[in-house]
Simulated scan of single mutants.
Amino acid sequence: MSDSSNRADFVRFSLEQGVLRFGSFTVKSGRVSPYFFNAGLFNTGRSVGRLAGFYAQALVDSGVQFDMLFGPAYKGIPLSTATSVALASHPGLQGRDVPFAFNRKEAKDHGEGGMLVGAPLQGRVVIIDDVITAGTSVRESVQIIRNAGAEPVAVLIALDRMERAGADDALSAHSAVQDVAATYGMPVVSIASLNDIMALLQDNAALAPHRDAVAAYRAKYGV
């Protein structure tokens, strides 16, 4: 599968699942966005299985060399688990069995204890999450991985909104994704981006009424 078809298929799948919607949505930043992407709505076995397949394909297509996955609590827990399952059967990995780990929000004081669950953090680690907004989850993950003596090599997300942060009169120079890549010196791999959403709007006549609003939003806030 080509990188571009994986991207396009993922955007269509997100639309079918109601994860990607068009309209008028007040997002966490207070902005009114003409589209909304909520990966939490991938919430059935079949949909999460397909989502994991898209993550696995994006990671293989990226060419990033990695040894294991790390999922920040809480959203990263099912994502790291499901994506490691998808990678196990991916032909590009030739039978490699990819370990995964995730963190707890609260330290466990009994049993094995500690903040980490899963495989030991070692080697080259890919952090997997749904989106990057403030970058807080990435910062915490990088610290956890480095503290364990391992090396964070990439962040893998579902959607890059390609959007600058800040008030309308004081917009950041870069998007959250660009800032993370620059801060940690590692790539942020996304299954799809706002570019792919724009391509869907161009190709789908039923969605034509939303084209101008998304284009205007991108002109104002995009990178």
Rank of each mutant, 00 (worst) to 15 (best):
G166I: 07
Y217C: 06
D61A: 04
G53W: 12
M68T: 05
Y35E: 00
K105H: 04
V153N: 10
D179Y: 14
S62I: 03
E106G: 10
A176M: 02
A173S: 14
A56D: 03
R124G: 00
A134V: 08
N6T: 08
K220S: 04
G118H: 11
D97A: 14
V11Y: 15
A8F: 00
I197R: 08
T44H: 15
E16T: 05
V32D: 11
E151K: 05
A58W: 08
M162I: 03
R96L: 04
R7M: 02
G30N: 08
A150V: 01
L51E: 08
P78N: 02
L69Q: 14
A154Q: 14
A173L: 06
G222W: 04
D212M: 04
V27Y: 08
D196V: 02
H174I: 06
N147K: 12
F22T: 00
V60N: 09
E163T: 07
R96G: 06
K108A: 01
G92W: 05
A101Q: 07
V85K: 13
A58F: 12
G166C: 04
I77M: 08
H174F: 05
L171F: 08
M1A: 12
R50V: 01
A181D: 06
L116H: 06
L59S: 11
R7E: 06
A170E: 11
A58P: 10
V32L: 12
N38R: 09
A158L: 12
E106R: 14
R21H: 10
A158V: 08
I132N: 07
M68A: 01
G45A: 08
G92D: 04
R211Q: 09
I145T: 08
P209N: 06
K108H: 04
P120L: 06
M68C: 09
Y184C: 08
L51V: 04
S193I: 03
L156C: 14
G53D: 05
Q202N: 10
V223M: 09
T81W: 15
D196M: 07
G40V: 00
Y184S: 00
A119W: 07
S137C: 00
S14T: 09
L156T: 04
Q143A: 13
S175V: 01
F22W: 02
